[in-house]
Nucleic acid binder design. Structure first.
Lengths: 184, 184
DNA sequence: AAATTTTGAGACATGAAAGTCTCAAATGCG
DNA sequence: CGCATTTGAGACTTTCATGTCTCAAAATTT
């Protein structure tokens, strides 16, 4: 459930994923609280950003769990992952853009762990013959994340309907832009 | 050719695309000049950022020109575009992340114009039967840009070899991650 | 309804980066 | 070689977001 802190963090993401330099004023207003209260909940800007990152990682990690990406065939696992991750795409977009967090050991470790799970999925998919081997698993993993972030931005700014987002992401990433006469 | 200003701007991109909040000190050092000289060339931070954006758009526009995206079949045009745009991927990554520039009329207009050209390419490709029609031209265009930015980041941080970048971008975007028995 | 707690608005202090200036060193030019 | 221009290092001022504080209003509890 969305605790009090989490709802503030989600409001913060809405602002920060678009403008990482936004003032605390603005974030507080978006969260519907005063700057004073924001300060009471989070000691300062740095702490706030850190917690947004931590929330993003928790959600991403939870998405990997609910999608059970280690099970079944790789393509189906990836499709499940898309469905699970799309609701938190904005959070992922923030994570993707916030390279500053990477010198925080705790965050860094958690990120590394989740990233490894995704890379492993692609590697497994390549070994199963599901994914192309001409593209490195690392690049597949990174590109996937880029597109998740892109979906997050596009939805947030109204350029893409939320209902289409999972389909658009999965189809483009898996199938590419080229039309084909046959289904694979 | 890279005039004096442009070389400073390119150094600035190297820093700013990774950390948009970097101090001017750092940017000056990266450009090999002093903070005083940086101030002499660009009146201030805002002006610098603006010019970086303008350079990015000029380069992107030039890439669309050299790729002659309006000519020939759409797939080939897109492949040419990939080759033309990859050298400036870092600049594009900056553009993608810098939504602040969008309230500058001049920049905004220029961006809108180039974006329209790319969208037109995808639309044309869909009409020719080259690109899938289940995905909107707007999303194809946006996703393409997301991946260009991703390539820029990955190369800049050494996660992807520059020589592989054009291939990785074109293949993933056009063909997707799924392996296929036949070539389309 | 009274008491306790939480919140918001604003004033104020702090600190850090941006912007400005000066002057000596370096560079380029005639 | 001497003159002119440009550059760099640093001190300084300014600006603005952050962080801190206070107090009254609102909400919650009992």
């Amino acid at each position: 459930m969305a605790t009090d802190r989490d709802s503030v963090l989600e409001a913060a993401v809405g602002i920060l994923s678009r403008r990482p330099t936004a003032h605390l004023d603005e974030i507080a207003r978006a969260a519907g609280i005063s700057r004073a209260t924001l300060h009471r909940i989070f000691p300062g800007r740095e702490a706030l950003i850190l917690e947004v990152g931590a929330l993003g990682l928790r959600r991403f990690s939870a998405a990997l769990d609910t999608a059970r990406i280690e099970e079944g065939n790789a393509e189906a696992a990836l499709r499940r992952l898309v469905d699970a991750v799309v609701p938190d795409a904005a959070l992922c977009a923030f994570l993707a853009g916030e390279n500053q967090l990477y010198d925080h050991e705790e965050i860094n470790d958690l990120w590394e762990k989740q990233d490894a799970r995704v890379r492993a999925l692609f590697l497994r998919g390549q070994q199963e013959g599901a994914f192309r081997v001409e593209l490195s698993a690392a690049w597949l993993s990174e590109a996937f994340f880029d597109l998740v972030a892109g979906i997050g931005w596009a939805v947030q700014e109204g350029r893409l309907a939320p209902r289409e987002s999972a389909f658009s992401l999965a189809e483009l990433f898996l199938g590419g832009a080229l039309r084909r006469s046959d289904t694979p």
